[in-house]
Computed example of a mutant assay.
Amino acid sequence: MSQFLAMFQQMGPEMFSKGVAQIAPYFGTIDPEVIDLKPGYCEVSLKNQKKVHNHIGTVHAIAMCNAAELAGGMTTDVSIPAGARWVPQGMTVEYIAKAKTDLKVVCEAADVDFSQEGKVVVP
């Protein structure tokens, strides 16, 4: 079992999320909360708060990217085979609309083969 998955199960969402921010401080800049975490799936809550706003008062696109990277990274970490390592290589982003509410950021990757070597695309 992934170390992060074991920590999530033992600590619960709020404490786990605070711990992630200690391990990777950049994630702490958006105060995310990992709501659910299991192999092939992660859900992160991103609160609409002033610290993540842009100049027009909506959630900044890069704050959303930060939350998406957290969800994708956590999903990957808890899904790869024991002893495997991963490194993010890129992210594709489309800005579809202004975000004016709290956001639920989800990575659903149940159909991804995390055992393959080389580049693995995680939605």
Rank of each mutant, 00 (worst) to 15 (best):
V122P: 00
M1N: 11
M7L: 14
G57V: 05
P123K: 08
S79P: 02
Q3M: 10
V59I: 05
G72E: 04
F4M: 10
L70T: 02
F27R: 03
V105C: 00
F27W: 08
T76A: 13
G72Y: 05
F27D: 04
V122I: 11
S115E: 14
A71P: 03
M11R: 06
N54K: 10
W86Y: 15
K98R: 13
E94L: 13
K100S: 10
D113I: 04
V52T: 04
K119L: 14
V52W: 01
I35V: 14
E108L: 07
G118V: 07
T92E: 12
Q116H: 09
R85L: 10
L37M: 02
S17T: 03
L37F: 07
A67Q: 02
D113R: 08
I56M: 10
M15Q: 13
G83D: 05
E108F: 09
K38C: 09
A6N: 13
G83P: 05
G19S: 03
L70R: 02
Q9W: 11
K50Q: 12
D113T: 05
P32Q: 02
F4Q: 09
M64Q: 12
K119G: 10
K50P: 01
T92P: 06
Q22K: 15
V112E: 03
L37R: 02
E117Q: 09
V59P: 00
F8G: 00
V120T: 07
S79N: 08
P13Q: 06
F8H: 04
T92S: 15
D113V: 05
I30S: 00
A21F: 07
D77R: 12
P39M: 11
M11E: 10
F8P: 01
L103N: 00
M15R: 15
N48A: 01
I80N: 03
A63R: 01
Y41H: 15
V44Y: 01
M7V: 04
K51P: 02
S2G: 14
K51M: 11
Q116I: 11
D102M: 00
E43N: 06
E69M: 09
V44D: 03
A24M: 15
N66E: 02
P13R: 09
V122T: 06
V93C: 13
V78G: 02
C65R: 08
V59K: 00
M15D: 13
K104Q: 06
A67W: 01
W86V: 08
E108D: 15
W86N: 12
A110M: 11
G90I: 10
T101L: 00
Q9I: 11
V93S: 07
L46Q: 01
A97M: 14
M11D: 06
P32Y: 04
P13D: 06
I30H: 01
A67N: 01
C65H: 07
Y95G: 06
S115N: 13
F114K: 13
P123C: 11
G12T: 09
A71H: 01
D102A: 00
V112I: 12
L46P: 00
I80A: 01
H60T: 05
V112F: 04
A82S: 15
T92G: 12
D102F: 00
D31Q: 11
E33I: 04
E117P: 02
D111H: 13
D31V: 04
A6K: 15
L103R: 00
C65E: 12
P32H: 08
A6V: 08
E117R: 13
M15E: 15
E14N: 14
